[in-house]
């Protein structure tokens, strides 16, 4: 045998944990500004749009951390975005967290998941962030 069996990562063959969430869209002034200043095909706009804000409990359930890429799939489409841990006092609902609800800026990345409030599955991903071209097939 050419390889050492102890070096094989068996966990990559296991199913990635996923979590059922409801997608809620929100407006972000910096994202709107980026669209006007740099255009909707720009990296600046993508960085502020391909984002999902998740509750720390949900991040833990899918074995992901702040800044990891996550795959979000609904019956209408699939998108890969950056996971952001929700900030205290800003995203937390009545100090109880928002487990089961993911917040995404209103954009093509969130709209491809369907009309609001969209139900979707989220899981950690090694894939690249979805580009505009992939989402609208230009």
């Amino acid at each position: 045998m050419s390889g050492n069996i102890s070096e094989i990562r068996f966990d990559r063959f296991l199913a990635v944990p996923e979590r059922e969430i409801t997608i809620v869209r929100y407006h972000d002034i910096f994202q709107t500004e980026a669209a006007l200043k740099h255009g909707k095909f720009s990296k600046e706009y993508q960085d502020l749009s391909a984002v999902i804000v998740l509750d720390p409990a949900d991040l833990k359930k899918i074995d992901a951390s702040d800044g990891d890429h996550v795959k979000i799939s609904s019956e209408y489409g699939t998108v890969v975005a950056v996971a952001k841990k929700s900030e205290e006092k800003k995203d937390v609902r009545a100090n109880e967290g928002h487990s089961g609800v993911g917040y995404m800026p209103a954009s093509v990345w969130s709209n491809i998941l369907g009309s609001k409030p969209a139900s979707a599955k989220v899981s950690r991903s090694q894939q690249k962030i979805s580009t505009v071209g992939e989402l609208i097939r230009v």
């Binding site: 006007l36 909707k40 489409g77 954009s107 709209n111 071209g133 097939r137 230009v138």
Partner: peptide, 30 residues
């Protein structure tokens, strides 16, 4: 109005699309 941004599946619609807009939009791409 940026149809493709609001409804990304619009680019798959079997209709001709005409865009009149002061700015670059996603719809202009298809």
């Amino acid at each position: 109005f940026d149809l493709a941004s609001s409804l990304p599946q619009a680019c798959d619609i079997d209709a001709s699309i005409i865009v009149i807009d002061p700015s670059e939009t996603l719809t202009a791409g298809c």
